[in-house]
Simulated assay, not measured.
Amino acid sequence: MKRQGYDGVVLAVPVSVPYIRYSNETAHWWIARALRGMLEQADIAPRDLDGFSVSSFSLFPDTPVGLTQHLGLCPRWLDTVPTGGASGVIALRRAARAVQAGDVDVVACVAGDANRIDSFRTLLTGFSRFSMDATFPYGFGGPNASFALLMDAYMAEYGATREDFGKIAVAQRANALLYPDALMKTPLTLSQYMDARMIADPISLFDCVMPCAGAEAFLVMREEEAKQRALPFARISGTIERHNAFADDPIQLRGGWVMDIDELYSMAGHGPEAIDLLQTYDDYPVISMMQFEDLGFCAKGEGAGFVRDHDLTISGDFPHNTSGGQLSVGQAGAAGGYLGLVEAIRQVTRQAGGTQVADARRAMVSGFGMINYDRGVCSAAAIIEGSGR
């Protein structure tokens, strides 16, 4: 079945609230800052915002419904997207269809999380019953050990080396030096990556994201609305989403993108060769390498060779995670699932400042989320392009 496109719906006003390592503020505060920044830029009064989509891990015991009262909103359309690293693209999909159907005019999509001392450990304690049952009896919890299993299996199966993953981390750090809000502001060399202390073999320090506090946001609206408000905007060429893909695989060496990537390129009317920059979800470099393959930039098992053959920096032949990605900007909870999309909107609307890729008109964004022991169960991707194309 041919999927319906997203004609007439656009993305605008990308906003990032600068991250900090720890914060005593609540998730509500971070989300409110992002929302206020967007509405001020778009010159929209809170009472005129009729759609609201929220992603957050630390909002409990409140919900997005409670946020409407906290923030003085009265939306006709409300959504919550609890899919971690896939949240940005999935929120985009839901909001775009609601606007296209005429159920809502302007949707604010916002992700934000707090990070107090010890809050990450507390979050992991109740993150997933399946993960708890599978890992706690063996004396570990959290994503590092789970992704170590995945990375080790990938290396054994396809011959990738730690140097290959290190090249991804080093390139992203180089990009982050040009992104003003990145938490990691010290250059990283491949030698430093290789010599870093081991966290969960084969994962070492610079394979791991740093939990932090922050927020990301964007608006979804009709194209005529963006033009009336004189807002730079990006069009949506296509999107895909898949959950619990390849459940029979012994361990995850591919994601749900594989099932739908041909559909995505069919919607967009082109293949991977037309993409000017790629933003992958990057809680660990092995996940980005997996996405290079599953999104069609190289064949399965050729990710390491692809990395060796390309320059992944902003000025390189394959610009990837141009803000520095989570590995160098930080992982602000659910906002990590928005980081690449917000940066992609900035890129194709020529608002990226120091990280701007020359001639960037078409971007792909992919999301990956909700790790349950040996795999992430949510995947999504979108292609967006600037309105000047």
Rank of each mutant, 00 (worst) to 15 (best):
residue 83 T to Y: 14
residue 73 L to D: 02
residue 124 L to R: 12
residue 319 P to W: 01
residue 375 R to Q: 02
residue 258 V to G: 12
residue 119 S to D: 13
residue 94 R to I: 11
residue 241 E to S: 15
residue 64 P to L: 07
residue 168 I to V: 09
residue 64 P to I: 06
residue 302 E to I: 02
residue 60 F to A: 11
residue 300 K to E: 09
residue 76 R to A: 09
residue 245 A to Y: 01
residue 169 A to M: 08
residue 202 P to Y: 05
residue 212 C to T: 12
residue 76 R to P: 06
residue 254 R to T: 04
residue 231 L to K: 03
residue 246 F to R: 09
residue 19 Y to M: 12
residue 184 M to W: 13
residue 38 M to I: 05
residue 388 G to F: 07
residue 376 G to T: 15
residue 385 E to L: 04
residue 165 F to M: 14
residue 338 Y to M: 15
residue 268 A to Y: 02
residue 183 L to W: 05
residue 220 V to M: 01
residue 171 A to I: 00
residue 230 A to H: 15
residue 202 P to N: 03
residue 366 S to N: 02
residue 209 V to F: 10
residue 292 F to K: 08
residue 364 M to P: 10
residue 312 L to Q: 03
residue 102 G to S: 04
residue 280 T to Q: 06
residue 84 G to M: 06
residue 104 V to L: 13
residue 136 F to N: 08
residue 101 A to S: 10
residue 112 G to N: 05
residue 65 V to S: 11
residue 97 R to K: 11
residue 365 V to W: 09
residue 162 R to H: 12
residue 308 R to E: 06
residue 234 A to S: 01
residue 237 S to E: 15
residue 38 M to T: 06
residue 139 G to S: 06
residue 205 L to F: 06
residue 21 R to Q: 08
residue 285 P to F: 09
residue 196 A to L: 08
residue 55 S to K: 04
residue 72 G to P: 03
residue 88 G to C: 04
residue 253 L to V: 02
residue 372 N to F: 14
residue 366 S to M: 07
residue 169 A to G: 08
residue 277 L to D: 00
residue 359 D to A: 14
residue 340 G to D: 11
residue 354 G to N: 00
residue 237 S to L: 14
residue 336 G to D: 07
residue 293 E to T: 04
residue 186 T to Y: 05
residue 121 R to G: 13
residue 270 H to C: 14
residue 339 L to Q: 13
residue 326 Q to E: 13
residue 71 L to K: 03
residue 198 M to W: 01
residue 72 G to M: 02
residue 173 R to H: 10
residue 376 G to S: 15
residue 87 S to I: 10
residue 250 P to V: 04
residue 211 P to N: 00
residue 180 P to I: 05
residue 213 A to V: 05
residue 264 L to H: 09
residue 75 P to W: 01
residue 10 V to R: 04
residue 256 G to S: 10
residue 187 P to K: 00
residue 386 G to F: 00
residue 267 M to V: 08
residue 307 V to S: 04
residue 373 Y to F: 13
residue 3 R to Q: 15
residue 26 T to K: 13
residue 360 A to H: 03
residue 17 V to K: 07
residue 285 P to L: 09
residue 4 Q to Y: 11
residue 329 V to F: 08
residue 309 D to R: 12
residue 49 L to A: 01
residue 145 A to H: 08
residue 118 D to C: 15
residue 350 R to N: 12
residue 231 L to M: 07
residue 218 F to M: 03
residue 311 D to N: 11
residue 20 I to M: 14
residue 158 Y to K: 06
residue 98 A to E: 02
residue 363 A to W: 02
residue 166 G to L: 07
residue 80 T to K: 09
residue 91 A to W: 12
residue 121 R to V: 14
residue 59 L to G: 04
residue 351 Q to W: 11
residue 369 G to W: 12
residue 3 R to K: 15
residue 374 D to E: 14
residue 111 A to W: 09
residue 37 G to W: 06
residue 294 D to H: 08
residue 122 T to G: 14
residue 249 D to P: 12
residue 211 P to Y: 00
residue 49 L to S: 01
residue 258 V to P: 08
residue 23 S to K: 05
residue 378 C to I: 10
residue 295 L to A: 03
residue 43 D to T: 10
residue 13 V to N: 00
residue 120 F to S: 14
residue 217 A to N: 04
residue 286 V to C: 02
residue 243 H to S: 15
residue 363 A to F: 00
residue 131 S to A: 15
